[in-house]
């Protein structure tokens, strides 16, 4: 596997860093070289939070990057904040429910993908697993980690919650699968970068 660079961005409290941490943990558990760096700003809460993840079979150089293979914007504000990480090789993902002005979307992208993650979470699952859908989407787009590794990492991260409420396990795994499916579907649909 060659180097995969992922930027996840959203509002503080959306679980961006948690998702990034679980993904990075899963990659590490698969014996891949992994770097995860949170963009930590002044705000403890509020403000756009970005996570930078790099996964590779080989040693990884600089901890940050300027252009990502996949950018996921989990909020409307995060779109503008992360557009700069996108170039002609980037899959740029955002929630199709966002009100987005076309000029806010990145000028360059391999593909701009709208995913109905919020809507799917609200209607079919639970609003709280919105970020797990996103995690599934990242896996579906990049195969950065195997689905099994992702499940295991989720299990170990959320074990204490699953213990209290076993239904949560099913809910999270389902969200992960739906996210992955939606991503794979979107790649097949061949929506162009002018979407």
């Amino acid at each position: 596997m060659s180097l995969i660079k992922i930027a996840l961005a959203g509002e503080g409290g959306q679980g961006v860093q948690s998702v990034a941490e679980i993904l990075a943990e899963a990659a590490y558990n698969e014996n891949k070289q992994t770097i995860y760096i949170p963009n930590f700003g002044l705000e403890q809460r509020g403000g756009v939070s970005i996570a930078f993840i790099q996964v590779s079979d080989k040693r990884i150089g600089a901890p940050k990057f300027s252009k990502a293979d996949v950018v996921v914007a989990l909020s409307e504000r995060a779109i503008g904040r992360t557009a700069g990480y996108s170039d002609m090789n980037t899959l740029f993902v955002y929630d199709s429910g966002f009100m987005v002005k076309p000029e806010e979307l990145p000028r360059e992208a391999k593909k701009i993908i709208g995913i109905p993650a919020v809507d799917t979470a609200n209607r079919q699952l639970h609003p709280k697993v919105f970020n797990i859908i996103i995690m599934g989407t990242v896996i579906g787009l990049t195969n950065v980690v195997s689905f099994e590794a992702a499940k295991e990492a989720l299990e170990s991260k959320l074990a204490y919650k699953f213990e209290k409420n076993p239904d949560l396990r099913e809910l999270n795994f389902k969200a992960l699968a739906i996210g992955k499916e939606m991503a794979e579907q979107s790649l097949k649909e061949g929506v162009g970068s002018n979407a």
Partner: peptide, 9 residues
């Protein structure tokens, strides 16, 4: 700060 905050094996 990068080295402080990033996770790496």
């Amino acid at each position: 700060g990068y080295q402080a905050k990033m996770r790496e094996p």
